[in-house]
Design a protein around this nucleic acid. Sequence first.
RNA 1: UCCUCGGUAGCUCAGCUGGUAGAGCGGGUGGCUGUUAACCACUAGGUCGGCGGUUCGAGUCCGUCCCGGGGAGCCA
Length: 430
Amino acid sequence: MEIAIRDIKGHAGEVVTVKGWLYNRRKSGKVQFLLIRDGTLPIQAVAFLPDLDPASRDALKGLTKESSLEVTGLVNLDERAPGGAEIQVREVRLVHLADPYPIAAKEHGPDFLMDNRHLWIRSLRQSALLTVRAEVIRAAEEFLHEAGYIRFDAPILTPAACEGTTSLFEAHYLYDQKAYLSQSGQLYAEAGAMALKKVYTLGPTFRAEKSKTRRHLTEFWMLEPEIAFAGLDHITRLAEELVSHVVQAVLKRRPTELKTLERETASLEGIAPPFPKITYSDAIEILQKRGSSIAFGQDLGGEDETLLSSQFERPVIVTHYPAEIKAFYMKRDPENPGLAQCLDMLAPEGYGEIIGGSVREDDYGTLSERIEEHQLPRESFEWYLDLRRYGSVPHAGFGMGIERVVAWIAGVKHVRETIPFPRLIHRIYP
RNA sequence: UCCUCGGUAGCUCAGCUGGUAGAGCGGGUGGCUGUUAACCACUAGGUCGGCGGUUCGAGUCCGUCCCGGGGAGCCA
């Protein structure tokens, strides 16, 4: 019977078949220890050569790393085995003999690993990380679904920038038209919210930023809820509940993967609402007291974010940034028009901004002026202005960067490992 | 775009004030009945990132270009 290695302990004393790849092999005379992985977990299979039929012995001859094989044997609970269980091999069937495998069970440099990303993802660590990523997305969608949100897919090919043109990827569209890869699904999500009230977009977004840091990709995934009849309090609560649910779901469902990643989980266990909330002014004051040279009116730099988040054990929510350093569509604070009704959530441990959101300007005249001020091509935004012409309501939303959330929860330094095939400033292969 | 570090065997690296290429891992062969990145022995494997210069002689010094790491700027 074929089983997933994850379930092996439930089959003690049974003869099972596992199908997978050879992760490593140790030989000691007539005994061979095969470490086999199947995408769920690795298992050690012990082959005693004199007990095997000639075909199986042949299969083991010259076996290389990452060769694919099917192993049938008796499941033993054995203290000597890593993980407590192993398979006593009865039959080995070679599916494909791999060429000598380039990735060794040794250290490698990032350039080499990234060139071999298509193979690197087979490593136990990378597989665990990508499993955590899948769980983050699943948990987030599950939470929003339970809360009555409708998934609303935004287009990836768009007619114009919703932000600065410097970070736009341009594409050729049909009949000599131009198209741009989406920097955010938000504007479309706003249209969705006017139709379905509570929606979210989920998908890849693209920014041609020449950023070379551990927190930036040129192609990254965002989850963007957008809610009609909502204000800053509403999205603040949603953000902290969403993030808490995702963290707890990963802790509950993927403990093995977190262990493989050697993630210290004590700090994650305490992630629950409410999160600390401070204003931008508070943040500047705290940072200046801690020795930062930041001045009021400047955006928080990477170091500032790390310094600020290190003051709290939970993600910290910073609100009311100066409107000048924020986007054109953000609604100003009625009590202080210099400030925007916005929020950023900074993850602990220096993982930076994982959420950015705001209340949207819902007044036609004001939004129209902002578009002029920012010298945006008005004709591209006519449909967006329509949302303020026909039944405009207060509404708000935010974007959550999937890769940064995964990096934080999994405890990996660089976001390039949190997506199967990262796109970076100097890398589009493989 | 700027600062900084780097590019030598398939991989990770060493290579002194310039003198003609090294180790470990991986590969191959052989040995070993409990290995945990197994171990032991033998063995094959190199356009020292490219181009130009200085020199009797350049992996090493100089110039330039290319590629990458870390960071900054930039980045709802």
